[in-house]
Design a protein around this nucleic acid. Structure first.
Lengths: 177, 177
DNA sequence: CACTACATGTAAACTGTTACATGATTCA
DNA sequence: TGAATCATGTAACAGTTTACATGTAGTG
């Protein structure tokens, strides 16, 4: 289960509580890589602690428990990160929708594709603004992951926009035949 | 559940059996958009038929049943495709791994990132070869979806490569500080 | 006739989501 | 002191994967 690896990776960068980790999934990670709610995170942390991959290293107010990765956990993470690349789990509702626009009538498909272009441009612009703001205030600690995600997201949106423009062109070509 | 929409979309392009649909998930769709095994597909088709979204329009050898979308199913698909875009389900093990490389020691992270660059280049090259081959033999029917996927995949791999090169550069910058 | 690909299914185990539930701290 | 945020959890349900199971048609 990749949730284990995701938590291991986040905790390896910096110790955190289940609450912190959940917020991470709501932000960058959940946008481009992996989603998980707090109802998955908390029980998983308990299971991982039982397996010796993480441990509670601090307790704070409101029952807050800060987890850290153990040496064993770090080794497991390392193995996963350095393993050969194969076809992993992929599930992307937006991409699914993009592909299935094919099933619409050409007129409607074109309208929808123009919507994709707009959506991708909005996304890219927001990230470019975010990038400029970051040049003023450089990130630190866990925010570095946010930067990795933002840079990936920017390229992702550009790819989406390019694809939609190509698909529009392709659609027009076919309508002429 | 997006499996319903995925099946609806595939069947809207062309009627197919559960077996055919499963193969589609193993190929292009499962690579970039959505994965599903035959043990999900068959029961789902039965449920969808009960709801009146699809119907068996042909029976062939070996118990083969070809499903087609009903008018009701087509309408449901259309609604889903034309709905406003929001944050859909996202789950991508490769992207998760890319982001978490941050947790490795800089040396190892750099090695892994160079691996990402290579992987993305291999993927892009394979798709470019596929594209040239397609110029000789233009696709038809369901293969059009394969073409949409291939063009998306190509841009995806390019984005991945660009990101990994940026991340390598970024890593070197931080090592100097 | 053997092998491969076609073709469909069930059941148990596992994973993830939604709804429900509770209480503490901080800040205006 | 009221509201927002912090912080954690359980239980029922929904969805997915893995293992098991079976049989047919075509091809060399």
């Amino acid at each position: 289960m990749s949730l284990t690896q995701a938590l291991l990776g986040l905790l390896a960068v910096e110790p955190a509580s289940g609450y912190d980790l959940t917020k991470e999934f709501e932000r960058d990670l959940g946008r481009y890589a992996w989603q998980a709610g707090h109802t998955s995170v908390y029980p998983e942390l308990v299971r991982m602690a039982e397996r010796g991959l993480v441990e509670v290293t601090q307790e704070g107010p409101r029952g807050r428990r800060t987890y850290s990765v153990t040496a064993e956990g770090r080794e497991e993470l390392r193995k996963w990160l350095l393993a050969p690349w194969g076809q992993g789990v992929v599930r992307n509702e937006q991409v699914l929708r993009m592909f299935l626009l094919e099933a619409l009538e050409p007129e409607e498909a074109a309208t929808a594709l123009r919507g994709v272009v707009e959506y991708a441009e909005r996304g890219a612009n927001a990230l470019r603004a975010h990038r400029e703001h970051r040049e003023v205030e450089p990130p630190e600690g866990r925010d570095v992951l946010g930067q990795l995600a933002a840079e990936y997201g920017l390229r992702q949106f550009q790819a989406m926009r390019d694809w939609a423009l190509w698909a529009l062109d392709h659609l027009n070509q076919r309508r002429k035949d």
